[in-house]
Design a binder for these strands. Sequence first.
RNA 1: GUGGGUGUAGCUCAGUUGGUUAGAGCGCCAGUUUGUGGUAUUGGAGGUCGAGGGUUCGAGCCCCUCCUCCCACCCCA
Length: 440
Amino acid sequence: MKVQSLKGFRDYLPEEMLQKDRMLDSVRQVFERHGYPPLMTPALEYSDVLLGKYGDDGEMLLYRFRDHGDRDVAMRFDLTVPLARVLAEHGEITFPFRRYQIAPVWRAEKPARGRFREFVQCDVDLVGVDSAAADAEMLVVGTAVMDQLGIEGYQIRVNHRGILAALCRLVGLTQTGEVAFLRLLDKLDKIGADKFRSQVGEIPGIDPAGVDRVLGTVLEAPEDSRQVLEHLSTTIGNDSVAAEAIARMEAVQVLLEASGIAASCRIDPSIARGLSYYTGLVYETYLDALPGFGSVMSGGRYDGLLGMFLGKDVPAIGISLGIDRLFAALKELDLLDSRTQPADVMVAQFSEELAGASFGAAAQLRRAGIHTLVYPREVKLKKQLQYAQKAGIPFVIVIGGDEQKAGTVQFRSMEQGQQEELSLTEAIEKIAQTRCRDAK
RNA sequence: GUGGGUGUAGCUCAGUUGGUUAGAGCGCCAGUUUGUGGUAUUGGAGGUCGAGGGUUCGAGCCCCUCCUCCCACCCCA
């Protein structure tokens, strides 16, 4: 037997899981604070439900097999297509429909740094509304998540499919070649203008005359979002689709400014995601410190996808956060909360005879809502304190013979190295005051 | 999936032109005389050298195959 987890799949040991759960709690809180309730769907879907939604490339990455009833099934590849299935299957749902879903998805890709075959996505979607308010709301939620996670130095780069369509038209592409062109455009800042020019020339049907205008539009885009919009309307504003996109982004920009998050969102005409089903706004989030790590949170407007099951177009917009990638990034940057124990306080076990006193105190602490751990056997105090210190437990309570007689406890702050004799009630108050656990 | 690298104690790594019982630091465990941590000090446990085959009198070191992880391409959360 090979004792090894599958390639691209990973374990989270308790210490890491505590950190990951703290992140997930934050994400959940932010979603609910913005009025989104949770949805849960199965890990497995009929293959038909998932097939034909991700393009040929995506389809090859599905984990697909036959179950014991010989049903052709596949593991969910994302959370958006299952959402579409739910909307089509449950006629009682009315719009606008909001939901969030935090769940693992599976993709049989080649694993790499920050890329796994099993990873948890955190999705919020707003279905049934096509408006600047809906667009802006996604960015409001997205920035709130990043802020709640304590992440400084990130940028949500925002674009619109209408801009991309106009750029394609500049080089004479309408349908064929668009995908190849947009892929190159997406890599523009990586490969540079010269490589872009030479590689773009190989796309069949391309009109080289427009390439410089595209480069001018993208490369000369200013930093400031407002200025980008002005720049875009002078360069491609005569294109009616682009004009519409610019107008929408202007309306969104007003709401971002009103929300105080405009600084975190930057309009960037080279963001080309949305090769599959995106129809309007698209966005990707990069960490300033790890630009090569890939997007940690992205999404966009997809007004056509839900119609595949419903038989009519339903506008929708969503955003998806990859918690495992973000976790890996924060770990690399050493930005994760270092606490490795959920306990606020450890009650030492002074002696076997006094174990009862420790258990009694622990019971009272827990009744007061304090996360409490009792050292599980009688060893010298030195050992017990060492354990508390290594585990990052901030307080230790010792009840020895003297304390038991006096009805008190020794209350020690591990961080400050100070100790005082208190009543248990006083100790409980002290812990409740100082601990900085997030309120549930 | 393609190309390049990598793989030695729990972790980070050393290991000389192939030559006897494979090392260090950190971590772990136990002491430094018995009611208290982070420092110091002493001792200890722990490795079929990624797996399998081959060359050789002899392989951690050379060759082949497979696997892992890393980097690039590709794609994405």
